[in-house]
Simulated scan of single mutants.
Amino acid sequence: MKDLLGLMGKAKEMQAKFQAMQDEIAGIEASGQSGGGLVSVTLTGKFDMKSLKIDPSLFKEDEVEILEDLILAAHNDAKAKVEAVMKDKTSALTAGLPLPPGFKLPF
């Protein structure tokens, strides 16, 4: 019974740590670029787009598809950076826990 109470206490402590980590991740920002910096996107830790910057030289009527591709690439670059920060923070928190391979936490 003592082990069960200890386990429950650790679970509650881990839940508080995960909540704090989620709050911290929500506050981060990551910028992604494409086209050699012609397009820049900034995302929050919740993957909300906070800013989009486009170099004026890309505003040409016949290059709309290029601009669209660059925006998508910059967004994906920023998203990958946010995911990398999330992975680092999650692995630091779960270090030493016997989680099965491929187990994903609910983020």
Rank of each mutant, 00 (worst) to 15 (best):
2 K>S: 15
2 K>H: 15
3 D>M: 09
4 L>D: 07
4 L>M: 14
7 L>V: 06
7 L>A: 07
8 M>P: 05
9 G>S: 13
9 G>W: 00
9 G>A: 12
9 G>V: 07
9 G>N: 13
10 K>G: 09
11 A>M: 10
11 A>I: 10
11 A>T: 12
12 K>R: 10
12 K>P: 02
12 K>G: 06
12 K>C: 03
12 K>V: 08
13 E>R: 05
13 E>F: 00
13 E>T: 10
14 M>G: 03
15 Q>V: 02
18 F>A: 11
19 Q>M: 08
21 M>F: 04
22 Q>T: 05
23 D>P: 02
23 D>E: 08
24 E>L: 07
24 E>P: 02
24 E>S: 09
24 E>H: 09
25 I>T: 04
25 I>Q: 04
26 A>D: 08
27 G>R: 10
27 G>I: 08
28 I>C: 13
29 E>L: 14
30 A>H: 07
30 A>W: 08
30 A>D: 08
31 S>V: 15
31 S>M: 15
32 G>R: 09
34 S>T: 05
34 S>H: 11
35 G>E: 05
37 G>I: 08
37 G>C: 07
39 V>L: 00
39 V>A: 05
40 S>H: 04
41 V>Q: 01
42 T>W: 01
42 T>E: 01
43 L>S: 04
44 T>G: 11
45 G>I: 04
45 G>H: 03
46 K>L: 06
46 K>I: 09
47 F>D: 13
51 S>T: 15
53 K>C: 13
53 K>M: 11
56 P>H: 12
56 P>Q: 10
57 S>T: 13
57 S>P: 10
57 S>Q: 15
58 L>F: 08
60 K>M: 12
61 E>K: 12
61 E>C: 06
62 D>G: 02
64 V>C: 06
64 V>G: 02
64 V>K: 13
65 E>G: 03
66 I>N: 01
66 I>L: 08
67 L>F: 03
70 L>W: 01
71 I>R: 04
71 I>M: 10
72 L>T: 14
73 A>I: 14
73 A>W: 12
73 A>K: 10
74 A>K: 11
77 D>F: 13
77 D>L: 15
77 D>C: 11
78 A>N: 12
83 E>G: 05
83 E>K: 10
83 E>H: 09
85 V>E: 11
87 K>F: 01
88 D>P: 03
88 D>V: 05
89 K>S: 00
89 K>Q: 06
89 K>L: 01
91 S>W: 04
91 S>L: 10
92 A>H: 10
92 A>Q: 07
93 L>Q: 08
93 L>T: 06
94 T>Q: 03
94 T>D: 01
95 A>G: 09
95 A>T: 10
96 G>Q: 00
96 G>N: 02
98 P>S: 04
98 P>F: 05
98 P>C: 00
99 L>Y: 00
99 L>E: 03
103 F>R: 09
104 K>A: 09
104 K>R: 07
106 P>I: 02
106 P>S: 11
107 F>E: 01
107 F>G: 00
107 F>A: 00
107 F>I: 11
